[in-house]
Computed example of a mutant assay.
Amino acid sequence: MKVHHLSVENSIVNKFLAEIRSVDIQKDAMRFRRNIERIGEVLSYELSKTLSYDSSGIQTPLGIKETALPKSDVVLCSILRAGLPLHNGVLNYFDDAENAFISAYRHHPNNDEAFEIVVEYFASPDINDKNLLLIDPMLATGKSLVAVYEAIKKYGAPKKIHIVSVIGSEEGVALIREAFPEETELWIAAIDPELNDKGYIVPGLGDAGDLAYGVKL
């Protein structure tokens, strides 16, 4: 798996990362969502450079301009609910893409720190022989993405998988490297060193879904 780690180089994405991590700035849910969206836009721009393009003649008022345009073979699939702001950012750039949504959440059967990933809902167009962009802002343990991948495989075989994420842990990245096809590419803004005993990324930012949409029961 090829990993594109944006924050190892200086760019405006580091400002957006700083703001979503800040305990003061992240109190503004609207700004938190917008910063996640903006990170999605930056990741999408970088990802777009790797897609296939066809030349097309564009009629202007004064002539015809040959322009390389991306093929329309992209499906965006976000993991509910935390993936929605990031999905919006990616959709801003791939605005003619097809869209899929899947639910995956941590279930604590014994009301302790141990959990399993439950996938209950999947709505999607045909994904066969298309570029599938799996969108999940927090790549913590990596178990959610693996469970999602196993569920999606029952519905078709994409041409290639791109994983789009905001912050991940080294452990999570290692897990998906083993679980996903070798040609998969990961587009991620930041990779943090560790997880705490609850499986949250450290230093991370907390619970992205709660920060974007409010605390859940």
Rank of each mutant, 00 (worst) to 15 (best):
F101T: 01
K27M: 13
I102G: 04
D197T: 15
L195F: 01
G63P: 14
G214Y: 08
L205M: 04
E46P: 02
N92L: 03
S169Y: 09
R81Q: 05
K49L: 03
E182C: 04
H87T: 12
I163Y: 02
P181I: 01
G83F: 08
P125R: 05
A208R: 02
A179D: 12
G142Y: 11
D129W: 04
I12Y: 05
S78C: 11
P85T: 01
Q59E: 14
V202M: 15
K143W: 05
I201M: 08
P193K: 00
A151F: 11
E185A: 02
D24K: 03
I64E: 15
S48R: 05
I58G: 10
G57S: 08
A29R: 14
E116M: 07
E150V: 03
I127N: 01
M1W: 05
E178V: 04
I36T: 10
T50R: 15
Y93W: 06
T50E: 12
V148P: 15
A29P: 03
V164F: 09
K154T: 13
A157I: 05
Y155F: 11
Y45V: 10
R31I: 12
I58R: 01
P125C: 06
L76Q: 08
K27H: 03
P181C: 02
L211F: 15
Y53C: 06
R106W: 06
E116N: 14
N111Q: 08
E182I: 12
L17A: 03
H4P: 03
I79F: 08
V118H: 13
V118M: 13
E98H: 12
L76E: 00
S144Q: 06
F101D: 07
K27G: 09
H5P: 05
A147T: 04
E66V: 02
D197R: 07
F16E: 13
K49D: 12
Y105N: 03
R21I: 07
A114V: 07
S11F: 00
A29L: 08
P61H: 04
I191H: 00
L217T: 02
E46L: 15
G172S: 07
M30F: 15
V146I: 13
P193Y: 01
I12L: 12
L91M: 14
F180S: 01
L91Q: 05
F115Q: 00
S103V: 08
L217E: 13
P85I: 03
G206N: 06
C77M: 14
I12S: 06
I36W: 04
H5R: 08
L139N: 00
S78T: 12
R21V: 11
G83L: 01
T141A: 01
L62Y: 12
K198W: 15
D95N: 07
M138T: 02
V215D: 02
P137K: 01
